[in-house]
Design a protein around this nucleic acid. Sequence first.
DNA 1: CTGAGCACCTGAGGGC
DNA 2: TGCCCTCAGGTGCTCA
Length: 273
Amino acid sequence: MPELPEAETVARALERVLPGRKITGVVVRVPKLRTSLQPLLEAHLTGHVFTAVHRRGRYIILTMDDQRGLLMHLGMTGAVSVVPAVEPLRRHEHLILRLDNGDSFRFEDPRRFGLLECHPLKDDGLPPALDFLGPEPLTEEFCTEYFYQTARQRHIAAKELLMDNTVVTGVGNIYATESLFLAGVRPTRRSDRLSRAACGRLVDAVKEILTRAIAAGGTTISDFRGVDGSEGSFNRELLIYGKAGEPCPHCGAILRTVKLGGRSSCYCPKCQK
DNA sequence: CTGAGCACCTGAGGGC
DNA sequence: TGCCCTCAGGTGCTCA
């Protein structure tokens, strides 16, 4: 998926078109994504107006005028578009919201790992269901000291620490891989053996990579598309993700691959200790 | 608490 | 052409 930069790209685009739009109809075409879509049908969405769009980690919240919101996660292959309602439906467009200006909001997701639910929102605009998430990586809360203290209390691989949504939210396989490379840390390195300096380099690397990826509109490997159908361009800036077997861009050593938590990780055996 | 394995799904690509 | 295998931006469960 869509990791944090892709969710941010989608959220920013939706923020330009959704607020002020009234929902005039709801069409659900599959029984469930990650969870059942039936409650969505029963949630009385029709007649309500979108007022804002928020992002938290990889989740996007479409706020409505009644203190409720649509909680959305793009899973691995989710994409959103807002197009004229007369456009023909595509095969995996599972949810369609008709809007009062003749457009339709569409959620497309071939693998159906995505999520769409209606939730009451707290005063901060977020649903209680997201309370478990750790700090946003691009805030001051995610700093060297926090990461170092968290790392030493855990006994897991550095990469799994980065990808744990309760530690820091929104860092997935692509950006964890890139950040570890930039920081010179091997993905398998145990978190409780990371020095304060290494934690600092990791925190800086995560912030730098995510910031640049957001500026590029995200990374499109195969499925990801912006709301207008455009592709993210960060693939061109990827240093090592998906390049196992090729030479390291820094030292020329052959990049290797290792499996961690079922996800493959590319790393340079020379640059990453 | 940790890590491995599997499950949820479809589609692309490689080997034969 | 088709079949079978592996793999893919995520998450969450069970089990040892």
